[in-house]
Each structure stands twice: as C-alpha cells, then as structure tokens.
C-alpha cells in the first residue's frame, strides 16, 4: 500500500531527531540495502545535509562485491563515518547460527567498544508478523535479548532509556511499506545498490549476504520497473531469505536473541 511520503518522512525525521536528543551515543546499522540507505537519506534531510551519527556495517566477509563497492561510494559521497563490525563466517554456519549468534556477536563487540546506548535499525512492520509487534524505540538487554512480552511504554513518543548495560533500538522506518521505500528512493534520487536491478532475468528483492539470499525472477531494470512489479505481486518480500522459511517462529527467536 502506497502511503503519503511526506507524512512518512516527517515521522521518521522526528524519530531520528528524538533519538539523537534523548540518547547519549547513537549509531545506525547500514546494510547497504534499500531501507537503511533510505533512512540515511531521511537523516540527511533532518540534519541539514549530513548524517550526524556513525553507521555500522556488520561484515561477515561474504556480502556481495556490488555491496562493498556501493558502500564505499556512498560513504564517500555522503561523508559517512563508517564502522565495520567484522564477523568471521565458518563453513558449518547457516541461517539461524549465522544471522543469530555470529552477526550479533560482532555487533556486540563493536557496540561495547564504542559504548553506544542506541542503535538505529531500519526495519519495517510490513516485513514480517513479528516486526509488526515492534515499537519505535525498543529495549534490548545486555545480551541483546528482546523481552517482547514486557515491552516499554512509549505513549505519545515518550521514550525510555535502556536499563544497565542494555541499549535501545530505534526504528524510524517502522511505519513504511516496501513500496514506500521505492517511491521515496525514486522521488529523492537516493542511491541504490545495483543488486536490486534485474540482471540475467533475476534480481534481489531483499538483501542479506551471499549465503542466505536468493534472487527472484524479474525483468525490472529500473526503479519504475520495480514499483510496477510490486504492484502486481502477492508474494512476500522476504521469500528469498533463508532464515524466515526454515522453521515456525524462527524470526521470533532470532529477534529475541538480538537479530536485526
């Protein structure tokens, strides 16, 4: 469903500004995917042309070559302060263990080192039933666990701070739908990772790393093509993501353990 972009952008900019003012040390996750890149574009508007917080790439060394090139190009163009959380992938790892513990551990180390108390994550409610349960500002404990049965109240945008050793996840794009991200990207000429465009009859609709993401059949070679294609599909965005399919409640478990 295509929502009003001005309404969404205002709301997201408001949340980003609230986070920067409420928390002491804020960073953002940047996967070089469409959502976190759109979030950075909103931040540039909210903070007069620059991104005032460092961006973290959790790098397990097996991201797509296109993603690394895109990362370096955008980071240079936008003057981003890029931090790399390096995680090492082992051959026996897949799905749950890879996204669950491996990436999370790398991020944990980096966050401890820098003492971040808030982390901006560009998830959207329409991605997954579990994500629809998220708050704009959501607490994670010292071990990155999400106590989803006991979430903090954030009535009227009254955000709380995390208890000792934990951090808050900030979700500025929570209200957006997949199609909104594309419309926003188009209207604001936000740079886009080329993997989203069709090549050899296939394109990526959702980007993870090379091990767990598979492309969909598509001829969409432009943003307009993607927007048209989304208007006609009834398939879920994350159908190409391994971890969601493996088992019932796997997303719930991953998120409870700190997955982004």
């Amino acid at each position: 469903m295509q929502q009003d972009l001005a309404q969404l952008e205002e709301r997201s900019a408001y949340i980003l500004r609230a986070a920067l003012s409420r928390f002491d040390n804020v960073a953002a996750l940047w996967s070089m995917g469409k959502d976190s890149t759109a979030m950075l574009a909103v931040a540039r508007k909210a903070f007069l042309g620059r991104v005032p917080f460092p961006v973290i790439h959790i790098d397990n060394g097996i991201d797509f070559p296109e993603s690394y090139a895109f990362r370096d190009e955008v980071a240079r163009k936008w003057g981003l302060k890029l931090l790399i959380a390096e995680s090492e992938i082992k051959p026996e790892m897949s799905g749950f263990s890879c996204c669950g513990s491996n990436k999370t551990e790398a991020l944990k180390r980096l966050m401890d080192e820098h003492g971040f108390d808030a982390l901006i994550v560009s998830i959207r409610r329409d991605e997954h039933g579990i994500r629809a349960k998220e708050r704009y500002v959501s607490e994670r404990d010292r071990n990155f666990r999400w106590d989803y049965k006991n979430q903090k109240t954030e009535m009227w945008d009254g955000y709380s701070k995390a208890k000792d050793g934990g951090h808050m996840r900030i979700h500025p794009l929570l209200d957006w739908n997949e199609i909104d991200v594309w419309n926003y990207t188009k209207r604001n000429k936000v740079p886009i990772n080329p993997l989203y465009y069709s090549s050899g009859g296939k394109r990526y609709r959702s980007l993870g790393c090379t091990h767990c993401t598979s492309p969909i059949r598509s001829g969409a070679k432009s943003i307009d093509g993607i927007i048209r294609e989304l208007g006609n599909t009834r398939t879920e965005e994350r159908a190409g993501r391994e971890q969601d399919k493996e088992k019932k409640y796997v997303m719930e478990k991953l998120r409870a353990l700190g997955y982004m």
Binding site: M1, Q3, R125, D126, H128, G129, I130, A132, K133, Y148, K149, Q151, N177, K248, Y249, E252
Partner: peptide, 29 residues
Amino acid sequence: MLLDSFEEERNGGLTIDSTRAQVEHEGAI
C-alpha cells in the same frame, strides 16, 4: 492468527502485545 504472531499468543489464543495491519478501502489506508 494473521495478527497474533508470537508463539505464546497462538498457543494461548490471546493477544499479548499490539500489532498493526493495513487495508486499503475507498481511497484511504
């Protein structure tokens, strides 16, 4: 079950925390 996504919600038949869902009707979301 389209709304209640937590394992505990589905097995217990109750909603524990809020969720959101959108529909389009007559030009409004």
